[in-house]
């Protein structure tokens, strides 16, 4: 199967500090993968490299067999932080339609088909009726879902979600999990999260990022063992970088 994301010996340093070292990673099309690791371990950097927002110092990265800066059009990206002006005068519909910016015709107005597609994504994330509401007036959880709708509106082959449940309450999270369960039938998903419960419900493929990257398959393990292993590993990672060998899919964690 084609690779949605493929890193080959990629390294990235930020001002002399090595953020990611010799990363080789493959996410096949159709997979649903969670990405975990401590804060500052390089998860966001890894996403930005895949999106072409950063360039690796060495090694190569491909997204659907394209260079990241062109392949990124096939990615629906849901950022972790709303690092834009929270009072910016924009409606939810306008935010979601940003997902169609790359096919904006020369006269600069979104065609009716794009608006219909945008309305459809409002339905999918359960926010129909909020189309004309100012984005600034929404709650944190609703904003998050609008950003997911925007990512879906791009008709992505790969959905990259950076800690989408960090700021939402349990009911919202529950609906979010249902949405992801539905979506993973159709698109490749890479989900960055600290929430091991969420990982458990969605996938058995976990990428551990802490300067180095390795991958585990955990389907053979029961829930309790899984929780123990990953919480122990996460705790361990806060003190020491992962220095064990890069393991391929199918290798259970030691």
């Amino acid at each position: 199967m084609a690779a949605a994301i493929e890193f080959r010996h990629a390294s990235f340093r930020y001002r002399e500090v090595s953020v990611l070292m010799d990363v080789s990673l493959r996410v096949a099309e159709g997979e649903c993968v969670a990405m975990i690791g401590p804060n500052g371990g390089g998860k966001s950097t890894l996403l930005k490299l895949a999106l072409g927002l950063l360039k690796p110092d060495s090694g190569s990265i491909q997204v659907f067999d394209h260079a990241p800066h062109t392949g990124c059009r096939l990615i629906g990206y849901v950022p972790q932080h709303l690092h834009f002006d929270p009072k910016f005068p924009i409606t939810c519909m306008e935010v979601v339609l940003m997902g169609r910016l790359d096919r904006l015709p020369w006269w600069g107005r979104y065609p009716a088909a794009d608006r219909e597609a945008a309305r459809e994504t409002f339905r999918r994330v359960g926010l129909s009726g909020l189309e004309e509401r100012p984005f600034a007036a929404l709650s944190g959880g609703q904003k998050q879902r609008i950003l997911i709708a925007r990512a879906l509106c791009t008709e992505p082959r790969l959905l990259l979600l950076d800690e989408p449940t960090a700021n939402v309450d349990l009911t919202v999270e529950e609906r979010f999990v249902e949405l992801l369960e539905e979506l993973r039938q159709k698109v490749t998903i890479v989900l960055v999260t600290h929430d091991l419960g969420l990982v458990e419900r969605l996938t058995d493929q976990v990428i551990c990022v802490n300067r180095r990257v390795h991958r585990h398959r955990v389907s053979d393990l029961d829930g309790e063992t899984l929780r123990q292993i990953y919480s122990a590993e996460l705790r361990e990672q806060h003190f020491a970088p992962c220095d064990h060998e890069v393991s391929g899919p199918g290798t259970p964690p030691a």
Partner: peptide
Amino acid sequence: AVCFDEEFARLRG
């Protein structure tokens, strides 16, 4: 789009 969310606009080409 550029005023609101530069990063996302860049990703959309």
